[in-house]
Design a binder for these strands. Structure first.
Lengths: 117, 117
DNA sequence: TTGAGTGCAAACTATTTGCAACTGG
DNA sequence: CCAGTTGCAAATAGTTTGCACTCAA
């Protein structure tokens, strides 16, 4: 399962992982998928992310990084841009909170959706 | 209902709004709360936000702004720090996506939680 | 009189959990 | 054998929806 997550750049839902996993193990249940994803997340080797009230998504990239989210199709893309630790501290100081880390989410319409219509 | 949302700095759940609303209208149902929040959101005067698989939250501050989220208690605080439009463009350019806006989420332990224990 | 808005309860969706069966070591 | 996994189905939690009803205009 970990391999499946690592092999995709999409940020799949549990449902997607389940479908994908079934190719090799036709009898795995969705419950097991959730159980194992939860366990992997507890070990910190996988991470659950949620975007605006939609289904939860999972990613194997647990290093700090940012995301781009398509307003139209909901696709999530990792940004290949270094996370700026100084920015965390600067923003935290300016806002009067003790922040340990931060995540930036860019929103817009992805290339694929722009091209349709 | 809009007044209730505007009057709080917390980012309440529908449940919270419901409870609060009941003080004045003891018979409102949760369904109505959801219905009206949805409508306000459609009008763009209110916004739904979700954090890490937990319950959806609502805020009346629809201007672009950033958030601090407490890792321990889940409290959400608006950051009084201007949103840097140039940063959106810069990050988008660097990552090769067309971003229209961005949101930064700071994570850490809030003052209240730090003081306990 | 009427229709927009409401309460209520049932429906839905995503996720979690209890439990008995199964399997590899 | 037996401890740990699993499938399955039922339970939960949050949210949405259908419908009959009410009340201000």
């Amino acid at each position: 399962m970990l391999e499946i997550l690592r092999a995709t750049k999409t940020h799949p839902t549990a449902e997607w992982v389940h479908a994908r996993l079934r190719r090799d193990m036709p009898r795995v249940s969705l419950g097991t998928v959730y159980r194992n994803l939860g366990q992997l997340a507890a070990q910190g080797v996988v991470r659950r992310i949620s975007f605006n009230g939609s289904v939860d998504r999972w990613e194997a990239n647990v290093d700090p990084h940012h995301h781009f989210v398509c307003d139209r199709c909901g696709a999530v893309v990792d940004l290949e841009v270094p996370v700026d630790g100084a920015l965390t501290r600067k923003l935290g100081r300016a806002a009067g909170v003790k922040a340990e880390r931060h995540e930036i989410r860019l929103y817009g319409v992805c290339a694929r959706c722009t091209n349709k219509r």
